[in-house]
């Protein structure tokens, strides 16, 4: 085992040179690259953290905005619902009022129509009764209706109190006799003869008018005595009215049972 000091010295120098060379070409570049990469990764991680933080904050902000929007939406929905309800109620009330108005109008029209109908019925009825009764009496008893009316009127006068009759002729020189039908001379004479016990020598002035409904009336000083078929017509009218009202109530019941009708 021998030691060559020259070689030892040369190897020491070689080794120191190698240390410098490797430090220059290996360690420094590699360590530098690793440090730079670490720095790069650290900066990327930091940037990622910052982005994550920003994203989290943004997410939080979006969540807040979303909850605000949901609340707003709920408020709007509730408001719309309430308004819809109110409008519906209003429309219903309007419709009810309109229906009530229409019903009222219809009733008024119906009543008017009914009244007109009844009036027409009364007139037509009176005329028809007159004609029918006249024909019946002529056919069966060979007697004129007008004569029978006059007889009936005279009979009624006989039943009246004397005070009322006196009031009729008081302070009068003439009395107005109004009939619905025209009186012939014979009938006028018959009437004069019949009324003679009540009117004395007072003059009878004859008139023809539609006012006494198929009858006769005698007008004096503030007193009027008459007979006509108004009572029969009233009964007929009442019967027709009952019939109409019954029909009307049936129609109303049907319309309530079926609202679309």
């Amino acid at each position: 085992m021998e030691l060559d000091w020259l070689t030892v010295s040369a190897q020491v120098v070689n080794f120191l040179i190698l240390v410098w060379l490797l430090k220059r070409f290996l360690y420094q570049p590699v360590v530098g690259a690793m440090a730079e990469r670490e720095h790069l990764i650290a900066s990327q991680l930091e940037a990622a953290c910052q982005r994550e933080q920003a994203a989290r904050e943004e997410q939080l902000a979006y969540k807040k905005r979303r909850s605000v929007l949901i609340k707003k939406q709920q408020t709007i929905l509730e408001k719309a619902h309430r308004q819809g309800k109110e409008q519906r109620q209003q429309l219903l009330e309007q419709a009810r009022a309109e229906i009530a108005r229409l019903v009222k109008q219809w009733r008024q029209e119906l009543e008017e129509e009914q009244a007109n109908y009844l009036l027409r019925l009364r007139e037509e009825g009176a005329r028809a009764i007159m004609q029918a009764t006249g024909r019946i009496l002529a056919d069966l008893a060979d007697t004129a209706l007008e004569t029978k009316i006059i007889d009936r009127f005279v009979k009624n006068l006989e039943t009246l109190p004397q005070e009322e009759l006196r009031q009729l002729v008081k302070d009068r020189t003439s009395l107005d006799v109004t009939t619905t039908f025209p009186l012939g001379n014979e009938q006028q004479c018959h009437l004069v003869q019949s009324l003679k016990p009540f009117t004395g020598d007072r003059t009878l002035v004859f008139h023809q008018s539609d006012r006494p409904r198929c009858g006769i009336e005698v007008t004096g000083e503030g007193v009027k005595l008459d007979w006509n078929i108004a009572r029969y017509l009233d009964e007929l009218e009442q019967q027709m009215l009952d019939l109409l009202q019954d029909q009307q109530s049936r129609v109303l019941m049907q319309s309530k049972g079926n609202p679309d009708a």
Binding site: L18, L21, L22, F25, L26, P29, A33
Partner: peptide, 22 residues
């Protein structure tokens, strides 16, 4: 010297294009 040259040249070749990316 041979070993030194080998190590130095290899280091130089490899570290010539060091990448600092990932």
């Amino acid at each position: 010297w041979l070993v030194m040259a080998l190590l130095t040249i290899t280091s130089m070749l490899i570290t010539r294009r060091l990448n600092t990316d990932t």
